[in-house]
Design a protein around this nucleic acid. Structure first.
Lengths: 346, 346
DNA sequence: TCTCCAGAGGGGAGCACTCAACAAAACTGC
DNA sequence: GCAGTTTTGTTGAGTGCTCCCCTCTGGAGA
């Protein structure tokens, strides 16, 4: 049992030599085919593998096979439980199907997205799941030109026909706003995404539609931009509350901004929900535990992650029917304690 | 400009042909060495690369070089902001240094950890960052036998001498408990980790030491097991509060359990912090936004992730001095509004 | 006894790349 | 103008694997 000081990996040829068979036979044992092997030979090979502690080299295998079992996951922000939940769903399905996921964190930056896409191409990724941070189509073009299947998660890019998974963003905002309307609110502020993407426009439209259905005129002054951080929501909230005629309820593009705004209101001594109601969208982890617990619309992030991975794997296997390429998941209003009728209606 | 219907990748040989040079020259241009190339030749090669849209095949390169630029990150739960923050730090440093990270989600399961370790070995990972879910050393042995450098993050495994990054868990619990002691509490409940690992034992010991330093006798009845979910903390909280002589303050192994217990108390109609104080450890995202905002001890998770990646990269490059292999990061008490003097002291 | 054939294993090319070793060209000094 | 030296470019072996194609063995049928 000599300790080898030289760092040398055990290859398939070593196993073949140890077992007294040819390298090809070792492959046939490991891969269970494509040619049969007698039980006797198989035993010999397995014994040799065990003795030497052999691990096949996936790199060589992938090079030869012209494909890998790696899928790239491009996400904007792993700190946001919305996305980390997506990631969890993706990883679970990937693992169950023998894929490994390469985590690509774009930090909402297009250049990093593109850098990662180049990396994934270079690594011959079997496919990629992409939560784009913009509607730039350069990355999609690149993936297409290299025939790398990909699915868009949460967001969609104009002109890109790849499979996609999204939530019903219009309905999400409609439900949140309508809930406030039903409680009797008529001046409802909306914190919108700083940059307009079609999913954020859908949410803004849901807000507008709910107002329209209640015959409440749309007031553009009640729509202010938020940001990616809680603090941004806080700033937006203050802006809304410092208006001459402030809203009696606030909803937003997402929970992050809603919670930020709620904190700002509390710092200003405003009671929630007695003086001011808040409804969010996403149902991130913080929403249930903030004070008061936030009324919000649940987006099924984990399920979306799982679904996108299933879609991608079907796409890789070329088993995805044309009519099942695009999915829009339903959303659900979750009423907690941040919403109540407006105080003047009491 | 014919559209190729056959899916064939452009290789370095195609570029060589296009540029009228040898394949090796193309490599020298791409890698900037090891042999020099005249500017004229370089231009020709670059033009050909551009024209053909060539992307080098990382698989072939890695196979030839006998190494990759992939690092594995084994984490127990990406949903928990504690770990997703670790992941973010790792990814950032990895990206900046040209490494890509393979996300390995163990879901607190030893079998998945081992499955992923096998996968990483097979993929010739350059290194791995590992947040182990137990103190089993099989995975570490495996990595060692394949000479794959790894660093342990957050936790440490008995007998494993690999570099490690952890927080001062003893101090964290000491600070939380001592804060409660200083406020005048003498019956302080502790929700411990369901399974004892050395970092959770350190936290329990920190709790005990703070009591001892204040001459408060340790009461084993005040220590109950929690779990991985908010609900588990809730159950543990109810258990503590249903005691004949319940505690006036509760602290726990982590924020998840603390927040769970706090919710349980609120459901029982107990006012926080007037009737009961809560102090946690970790400072996860929820802690600042729960109600009341949680007094806790901040663990620098993001910094720990970054540091572990820097350590791993130094280790891979064999530039890590022996005396810098182990780091224990300092922690900080963050006083918010979930703690107050006990009501009987008023 | 010989031929035929099926079943099982071996040989070897090829995947896209790197780099040492070699060849050729360009430059130097006399 | 030529040997010696430097600079630039090419050749080809090797990385570990898969799978096509070939060989070998042995049993069935003539």
């Amino acid at each position: 049992m000599g300790i080898s000081l030289v760092k040398r990996t055990i290859t398939r040829d070593d196993v073949a030599r140890e077992a007294g068979v040819s390298p090809a036979t070792v492959s046939y044992v490991i891969n269970n085919g494509p040619r049969p092997v007698t039980d006797e030979t198989r035993e010999k090979v397995l014994a040799a593998i065990n003795k030497l502690g052999y691990q096949p080299n996936a790199l060589a295998r992938n090079l030869r096979m012209q494909k890998t079992n790696s899928i790239g996951l491009i996400i904007p922000d792993n700190k946001n439980t919305f996305f980390s939940d997506n990631a969890l769903g993706v990883e679970q399905i990937a693992f169950d199907n023998g894929y490994n996921v390469i985590m690509c964190h774009s930090a909402y930056r297009l250049d990093r997205e593109l850098a990662y896409i180049h990396m994934l191409i270079s690594h011959q990724a079997a496919g990629v799941i992409w939560i784009p941070c913009s509607e730039d189509s350069a990355g999609a073009k690149l993936l297409e030109s290299f025939h790398i299947p990909f699915v868009l998660l949460d967001r969609v890019i104009q002109g890109v026909t790849s499979p996609s998974i999204k939530a019903d963003n219009f309905k999400a905002a409609y439900l949140a706003t309508n809930h406030l309307v039903q409680l009797g609110h008529r001046r409802i502020g909306f914190i919108k995404r700083p940059v307009d993407l079609n999913h954020s426009i859908a949410r803004l439209n849901g807000y507008k539609q709910a107002l329209q259905d209640a015959n409440i005129p749309f007031d553009p002054d009640l729509v202010v931009p938020g940001g990616f951080l809680f603090q941004d929501g806080s700033v937006a909230g203050r802006q809304l509350l410092s208006m001459a005629s402030p809203p009696t309820a606030i909803t937003a593009y997402n929970d992050m901004n809603t919670i930020g705004a709620m904190h700002a209101a509390q710092e200003m001594g405003i009671r929630i929900p007695e003086d001011l109601s808040f409804a969010g969208i996403d149902d991130i982890a913080q929403s249930e535990y903030c004070f008061p617990p936030l009324t919000t619309v649940r987006i099924p992030t984990f399920e979306m992650g799982k679904m996108s991975a299933n879609l991608l794997i079907a796409l890789i296997r070329e088993e995805l029917p044309e009519d099942q390429k695009h999915h829009c998941l339903d959303v659900e209003l979750i009423v907690r304690e941040s919403t109540a009728p407006p105080c003047n209606s009491k």
